[in-house]
């Protein structure tokens, strides 16, 4: 909590030192070193099963790592509860399957975290929710249940739900992969706008147009390792590794 909001560009906000993660005998992350600076927009890509989800899920402690060190916003994720809740307080997450709460209205979905997680009074939480719903451009859907919204609208609600926690970091795990093609852009547009506010973002996606437009840095993963990282122009134009070149060729040509 050294810096609060503002243009703190440059300060290190996520740091992985030699992080490994096992599922049984399977090594999903293999000694990963990774850093993100405040305000940085990082796009993570790589083949299926390469460990992209595992990497970002380690950032907010949805997965626990087995070796190495993870520090988020000055707090080391050491397996302790206090560290975990401190980190989760600063990190929002958007999932591929939206994971909205189906028994709650959109407004209730948005207010639950602020009221129960942050301890805001209801009125304040409601105003906050309305503000972020307007920002994802669906204020008129506040009283509907998630199942009555389109996929694109649901994912925008999910983004607003995370933003209501006013996090310093936003994680996205393939936010458009479950969407019909015609709804992808409405979600990406919201994410582009979010990037313009200076939010630190780590985005797992294969939307290379988004990466080109928004990413400060690309991270290419394979077999639980970060194989290559660099600015998108460089990675796209001149990938250093063969695996990255093959992968990009595949997704860009299809």
């Amino acid at each position: 909590m050294a810096m609060d909001g503002g243009q703190s560009g440059g300060q290190e906000i996520i740091r992985f030192d030699g992080v490994s993660k096992f599922f049984g005998d399977f090594r999903a992350l293999n000694g990963v070193d990774f850093t993100a600076r405040a305000g940085e927009r990082i796009v993570v890509c790589g083949p299926s099963g390469s460990g992209k989800s595992t990497l970002i899920r380690c950032i907010n402690g949805l997965e626990t790592h087995d070796a190495g060190k993870i520090t988020v916003d000055g707090t080391a994720l050491d397996g302790g509860r206090r560290a975990l809740s401190k980190v989760r307080r600063e990190v929002g997450m958007v999932f591929q399957q939206f994971n909205l709460f189906p028994h709650l209205t959109v407004m209730e979905n948005l207010m639950l975290g602020p009221v129960r997680g942050r301890g805001l009074p209801e009125a304040e939480a409601r105003a906050l929710a309305m503000r972020y719903l307007a920002r994802v451009r669906i204020p008129e859907q506040a009283d509907k249940y998630p199942r009555h919204l389109s996929g694109g609208q649901q994912q925008r609600v999910a983004i607003a739900r995370s933003l209501c926690m006013e996090p310093r970091i936003m994680l996205f795990d393939e936010p458009t992969s479950a969407l019909d093609p015609e709804m992808i852009s409405e979600v990406l547009d919201v994410m582009v706008e979010l990037a313009q506010t200076g939010m630190t973002m780590v985005v797992v996606t294969h939307e290379m147009g988004f990466a080109r437009k928004v990413a400060d840095r690309m991270v290419f993963m394979d077999h639980g390792e970060i194989v290559e990282t660099g600015p998108p122009e460089q990675v796209f134009a001149n990938p250093q590794s063969r695996r990255c070149r093959d992968f990009l060729a595949k997704i860009l040509n299809h």
Partner: peptide, 9 residues
């Protein structure tokens, strides 16, 4: 996971 990520205990 969604509940935890909005800081619910």
């Amino acid at each position: 996971e969604a509940a935890y990520s909005v800081s619910l205990s």
